[in-house]
């Protein structure tokens, strides 16, 4: 079952356009939402949640149209933009006491379980927590109201490698029962190489790819060769980088010719992003 579907989402800003953003996510999977800074990740997430007014397009979650069933959907999803950045001087206990009242399916035993597991002390205040702890606390809030879908904007940025690893482990645990899904945006693609099932890649407000991570990585190849090899190949490359002794470039696997005699490697997500950004002229 599709737990999330975004169709033809458009939003116009004077400096930036979200152009026809469409993608969908099945129940039971993790989707990574990648793109450079300013590519439109946060705007997409905010438009999906009605925090930013979209110009057109439809969003549905848990099988319901978001615009028509906003409150019901919000009962069953969790979302966060960074960690807890509100009520920094208020005791977590008090914040929780407020939040729990809003959810029909709030479960105190789940709350206690995760607070304990993450070694979170609810006598502390958000200002006394590390950024990893703040993110964990907002996850605890989402888990405690039994969210079926998590929409997370940059949950891993600002975390040290150990904290990131812990978090990713938790994400995989979250989807293990096959009922729940996570969409999370990040520009740290190594996080996704590990656990993501699907990747949606946005650049300059356009979705460039949205498919399984395995397929995506198989669809591209990193090629390296000498300067003479570059000229005839150029038209087929997505983008290339020349250096004093040769070049490297990204190519669609389907465009490869066995006669090319190039050094061929499987790219990482980061490689794909770097070459697409180069194509879009983003890093010039």
């Amino acid at each position: 079952m599709e737990i999330l579907s975004v169709k033809n989402l458009k939003k116009h800003y004077p400096q930036f356009d979200l152009k026809d953003v469409s993608f969908s996510l099945e129940q039971g999977y993790i989707m990574g939402f990648i793109g450079s800074n300013g590519a439109g990740k946060t705007t997409t997430l905010k438009s999906m949640l009605g925090m930013v007014h979209k110009d057109s397009g439809t969003v549905s979650m848990l099988g319901m149209d978001f615009a028509q069933h906003e409150l019901e959907i919000k009962q069953h999803i969790g979302f966060m933009f960074g960690g807890v950045d509100y009520y920094a001087k208020t005791k977590i206990r008090t914040i929780t006491d407020v939040v729990r009242r809003f959810y029909h399916e709030w479960d105190d035993s789940i709350y206690q379980k995760y607070m304990k597991r993450f070694a979170l002390d609810d006598n502390k205040r958000p200002s006394e927590l590390s950024s990893g702890m703040r993110i964990k606390y907002s996850l605890v809030l989402a888990l405690s109201h039994r969210a079926k879908l998590l929409l997370l904007d940059e949950p891993t940025s600002g975390l040290d490698p150990v904290a990131r690893d812990n978090l990713l482990e938790l994400f995989q645990e979250f989807i293990e029962d096959g009922e729940r899904s996570i969409l999370f945006s990040t520009h740290i693609t190594s996080d996704l190489e590990k656990c993501a099932d699907y990747i949606t890649y946005i650049e300059r407000g356009c979705i460039i790819e949205s498919r399984t991570k395995d397929d995506l990585l198989q669809a591209y190849r990193l090629v390296k060769g000498t300067s003479e090899q570059l000229a005839p190949l150029q038209a087929r490359l997505i983008a290339s980088k020349s250096h004093a002794y040769g070049f490297s470039g990204l190519i669609k696997t389907a465009e490869l010719d066995p006669g090319d005699r190039l050094e061929i490697e499987e790219p990482t997500l980061e490689d794909i992003m770097i070459y697409y950004a180069k194509k879009e002229g983003l890093n010039e």
Binding site: L71, K74, Y86, Y87, A88, F102
Partner: peptide, 14 residues
Amino acid sequence: AQNDTGFSVLLPVK
């Protein structure tokens, strides 16, 4: 200062 709006929009409320 406490980002009350950021907090409120996370809640299931109009």
